[in-house]
Each structure stands twice: as structure tokens, then as C-alpha cells.
Amino acid sequence: MSDASFRYITLVASLPYLGPLFSSAHLPMSRYRLEQRLSMLEAADRQRLERLTHVVSWPGVAGCSADAEVFALFEEACDAVQPYPALMELLRERLESRMLVAALRLRRDGGGDPAPVATWGRGSVARAIRANWSEPTFGLGRARPWLRDAQALTARGDHIGLERAVLTEIYRQLDRMSAHHRFDFEAVALYVLRFQVIERWQRYDTERARSRLETLLGETLAGAERSSVGAERGLAQ
């Protein structure tokens, strides 16, 4: 029994319960406080965790200009978490989910040409996408039921709905994996990834709220301007 295992126990016990996705309006702790708690980890684990969270977060891959760069980032992250097969599996699944969502969008925008998918490697999902380009769920609907919803939402252009469906699936996957890890590095990593999903959804929600507020303010101000102009005209007459 190593010191690290006791450290994981203390760290996991110090992290607040996250609860189901979409259930709470606020995160149970701030990002700052989470980072403070994660400082209990050893430097190597901390680095590993950063690699992992960087590659699965949207800002982490947003700077990539080519698909190859994204694949290279995933490869690097896989190397970093090599001692933890569950996390490698998670990365693989996350990459596949990204490929599927990207393929849905590509098909909606680009129509019948699956040419860009040729650069997505030789994995089973990339192969299935290329082989079943015209099928609604690329022939993967049975293994990945969420794809049916995602396909329908993409076709309707419901971006928020799609985001919600994808995040729900990711969160479910993380929850399922968490059941097998209580007090180890994987448990900490899965907690941080779930935290990231909630944070992303809430930020997304905040952005939506801000844009709605801006629209409402714009409408109200325009209405007030119109009525003040009308009042001035009335006074002038």
C-alpha cells in the first residue's frame, strides 16, 4: 500500500458530489478550489491529468488547424496515460465520438462527399463512417444509440440539442467508468472530466443567457427609443 493510494483517498473524499448532469444550476466548487485540491497529486500525475483534460476539452483542440494535429494530440495523451488502460479506452471513445459528430456535421454541410474522412485513420469508426456514409448513423446506431438522436438534431440544425445529447452521452460514459474506480488516479481523472462537462454546459448556458439578455435589452431599448421619439413628436405637435 503506497503513499499515493492514501493521497487518492484523501483527495477523492475532499471532492464534493457532482450529481447528475443538468441537475444543478451551479458547480459544487469553483475551478480555483478544484485546482487547489488537485495540488495533492504528485507532479507526474498532475501532468498526466493536464494532458488528458487538455485534449478532451474544446479549447484544447480548438487551436488545431488540421485533423492530423488533433490525432497527434490524442496520441500524446494516450502515451501519457498508458499506465491506466481505462483512461486510454476513454480517450479512444472520446475521439470516436468526436469523429462521429464531425462526420454528421460534415455530411449535413458538405452533402455526399466523404473525402475528408479519409484522413481520419484506420480505426473501426473511421472505416464505418467511410463505408456507410449515406446511412443515417453510419451503421453504428445499434452500438451507439445516442447517434440516432444526434443525427436527428444535426439534421434539424438544433445545435443546443446536439450539444446536450453529446454531453449527456459523455457524462453517462464517465459515470459508468466511475463505478469501477473509487480511490485511485482514474477516479480523480474521471471526477475532473465530469467537472469539465458540467462546467462546459454551464458556461454554454451562461452564454445563451447572456445573448438572450442582450437581445431582450436591445428590444427594450429600441422600444423605449421609439416611444420617446413618438413622445417628442407629440410634444412638438
Binding site: 492514501f6 493521497r7 483517498i9 484523501t10 475532499s14
Partner: peptide
């Protein structure tokens, strides 16, 4: 000692939260 250390580590963590 192992049992108390494990449970004690969890108790210390829980006290932080």
C-alpha cells in the same frame, strides 16, 4: 493500521469539504 489509515484518509478529505 491499514484500515484506520484508509478510513482516516477519507475522513480527513471529507473534513476539507
Amino acid at each position: 493500521s491499514i484500515g484506520c489509515a484508509r478510513a482516516g484518509s477519507a475522513a480527513i478529505g471529507a473534513m476539507l469539504d
